[in-house]
Design a protein around this nucleic acid. Structure first.
Lengths: 251, 251
DNA sequence: TAATGTGAAGTTTTTCACAGCG
DNA sequence: CGCTGTGAAAAACTTCACATTA
């Protein structure tokens, strides 16, 4: 993920373990939902259930942020929303560009949760001249030629790549050269970037393949279970219904 | 992720660590690219570079699958493609349904890499009656009412949820009730499912928030670096250019 | 001889279980 | 009393480094 540039261990930042950072958005979402329902406080148990994790893990995660709970009571929802938002850097607004306005890029541009918290789609960029000027999600698409200028004019540091795989590395290089230091990559390619640039990838086919692996395993186990059941049935026929009897036939 | 149902540790399956499973698709993609260029063999070093991991990790990962390499030579590309495909369960075809044919659902339906290896879009399902019958990516959209029938008729065990957050849990419940045991969730919600059902989620806003965290940290470090530089400069003014001198002013 | 395969060491993450506090 | 916060133990994962072997 190339978190480098300083001398700190790449996997930890500000003393907060990477695994914890990855869960903070989950907690934040659950807390936001509670906040909207005007729930004032929440226990680690309840919040953990809402976020789909176990409560010890959640408490440990929060312990890295500080002691924001009240023993015997739980956590103040509003306060925690604020603290996590601050920790994640969502109290400021991050301008984001999306490059590659195909079906996926359009879907991302239209994604509501985007604007709501901390992010703003500063520009949409596509290589197709026919797209230029067309509005998507109310934002006019601009041509790739102007990529560098767009990045600089808007002070963009986060870029989303939704181009075909073939174009991704080149787009990435231009983004980085123009000053982008965080990239979310939807193209099915490994991007190489200099130290100090973070890349995260979202990859449909990888996720499906992982599911297929588990799916296959389940099928295998079912077959095994059937075989075991059959074996048990056969054994019962050989040995009689009560099992613990010395076998008449060799095992 | 709810991998349960049997008595094995949920995080390991068939003796292959979950972290390894998650990387196999990466290796497979790199190997497929090599295969297309008719490269006959590859070393762990080269393949690791192509997949963006380190070579010791790759060798350890492969060691869980068996001894498929040749010392002094490397790995046979074709053979490894086959072994990994088999391990991931991609030698069979998995029919997949996509529920929620908005921008994102359409993007997924159009995604090429889908059909190529192991997966087949068996049906597209949407709640909007106006969509029914319309072809997306050459496949006619069907109405949610028929969800159960579609799942059963096609023997679908993998479902993709691309609906708005509000509908996701309900869709999920229906998919599971109809026999789906693996779900890829694009809706920004935590899904609850019974044991034996795997859920993986893809969440734009979580990824962006993780990037924002690191982005903020970088900015903080720059500020720190500036402060340190300023402090050093100030110190130099106070102490003169050679540093190790007893301070005249209090620290 | 070059590169795999792997014990062993090191690191990170998770979980346990309970002391401590409101 | 109830629930947080956290040391300590356990588990998972990564990396090292080298014996092994084609």
């Amino acid at each position: 993920m190339a978190t480098g540039r300083t001398h700190r261990p790449a996997t930890r930042s500000r003393g907060i373990p990477e695994a914890t950072v990855a869960r903070l958005p989950l907690y934040l979402r659950a807390l936001t939902a509670l906040s909207e329902r005007s729930v004032p406080t929440v226990s680690s148990e309840e919040l953990a259930a809402a976020a789909g994790v176990n409560s010890a893990k959640l408490r440990k995660d929060f312990s890295y942020l500080g002691s924001y709970g009240t023993r015997g009571v739980g956590y103040d929802v509003e306060y925690l929303v604020y603290q996590i938002s601050r920790e994640l850097g969502l109290t400021q607004d991050w301008p984001v560009v999306i490059v590659g306005i195909g079906n996926l890029g359009a879907a991302l541009a239209n994604y509501g949760g985007f604007a709501s918290r901390g992010f703003r789609v500063a520009a949409l960029i596509d290589a197709d001249p026919a797209m230029a000027g067309k509005p998507v999600a109310g934002i006019p698409v601009q041509h790739t030629d102007d990529l560098e200028k767009i990045i600089k004019d808007n002070g963009v540091s986060i870029g989303v790549i939704a181009t075909p795989a073939g174009a991704a590395q080149q787009v990435c290089d231009r983004l980085v050269a123009a000053g982008v230091t965080s990239i979310l990559n939807f193209a099915p390619t490994v991007l190489s970037v200099p130290d100090g640039v973070d890349v995260r990838k979202v990859d449909l086919s990888i996720e499906l393949q992982i599911l297929a692996f588990h799916e296959q395993r389940k099928a295998g186990e079912e077959a095994e279970a059937v075989l075991e059941a059959e074996a048990a049935a056969a054994k019962e026929i050989r040995e009689g219904p009560d099992g613990d009897v010395p076998a008449v036939m060799p095992a």
